[in-house]
């Protein structure tokens, strides 16, 4: 064998290998040994709520919360597969189904915000200023005004589909080229609406913290039917024995405790409160 090149290759390989091991061992962040994984929605993440409340929770309990932000449907699936300890989403019917399937033993309401219909200033459907979301959707459909749908099985998407149903429109059958499903998160949907001059249903929290508004404004708000409830569920260890039951429950407990509820209420952008705590409220 060629002693010289082999020796130098060996040395180089060894050096690189050791560097690699050192790099791989180095912690990315001062990650506490205690952590839980929470599957949540894009709205809680993109609005900045987690950046506000998670440090408070960590300071109190020493538990780091790792948040995967996905659409509600995807987040529930992450919980179903056992890849998260806690699911924190907003689609009541889907959440109750999750509990019914046995993936969680309990769903607890945490807070709500509301949806708003966002649209271009030019208001092609003539719905601006209305408080009736159902009438507004009917008009949009009649005039075939551009409308962006999340189309990603998220809580917002579920809420939107439900509103079409309430408006008596079978959107699956009646959608035309004006109805655009993008299959992405809230922020992406807002970016797309801005670029296309389209209407879009958004949660208020994401809207308030959204920075690339361009010509977009709130067209419809204040309708009771735009209510958006968030619930928290810890994953059932009977389904996935490895989940961190105690720490997960601790997080859910804290969110619904007076302290957690206050933290949620305290989160404001430009003086506007984004989420309204309502833990323990019957029927929420």
């Amino acid at each position: 064998m060629t002693a010289l090149p082999r020796r130098s290759l060996l040395a180089a390989g060894l050096f690189l290998g050791l560097t690699g091991i050192a790099l791989a061992q180095a912690p990315a962040a001062p990650a506490g040994e205690r952590f839980i994984t929470v599957a949540s929605t894009t709205s809680t993440q993109d609005s900045g709520l987690f950046n506000h409340i998670l440090p408070l929770f960590k300071a109190k309990t020493g538990i780091e919360v790792r948040v995967i932000s996905q659409g509600t449907g995807q987040a529930l699936d992450t919980g179903r597969r056992g890849d998260a300890d806690v699911v924190f989403v907003h689609a009541r019917a889907q959440e109750l189904k999750f509990v019914e399937e046995g993936f969680s033993t309990e769903r607890r309401p945490v807070m709500y915000n509301d949806f708003v219909l966002i649209g271009p200033k030019s208001d092609p459907a003539g719905v601006a200023g209305s408080k009736d979301i159902v009438a507004a959707l009917k008009k949009i459909q009649e005039k075939a005004a551009p409308f962006v749908s999340r189309g990603d099985k998220s809580g917002t998407h579920a809420a939107e589909l439900n509103l079409w149903k309430v408006a008596g429109i079978d959107i699956a059958a009646q959608k035309g080229s004006w109805y655009r499903e993008i299959g992405q998160g809230m922020g992406a949907a807002l970016n797309t609406s801005g670029a296309m001059g389209a209407y879009v249903l958004s949660d208020r929290a994401t809207w308030i913290s959204f920075k690339n508004r361009g010509d977009l404004v709130i067209s419809v708000e204040g309708d009771q039917r735009l209510f958006n409830q968030y619930g928290v569920m810890s994953v059932n260890p009977a389904k996935h024995p490895h989940v961190k039951v105690a720490d997960g429950k601790r997080f859910a407990d804290w969110l619904t405790s007076p302290e957690g509820q206050k933290a949620i209420a305290d989160y404001k952008i430009d003086g506007q409160q984004l989420f309204f705590p309502n833990a323990g409220q019957a029927g929420a």
């Binding site: 994984t37 992405q184 970016n191 920075k211």
Partner: peptide
Amino acid sequence: IAGYTRTMTTAITLETSKG
């Protein structure tokens, strides 16, 4: 995941979605 698995590219994706 913020502070744990957030890289340059995923942060770019996130900031884009935040507008």
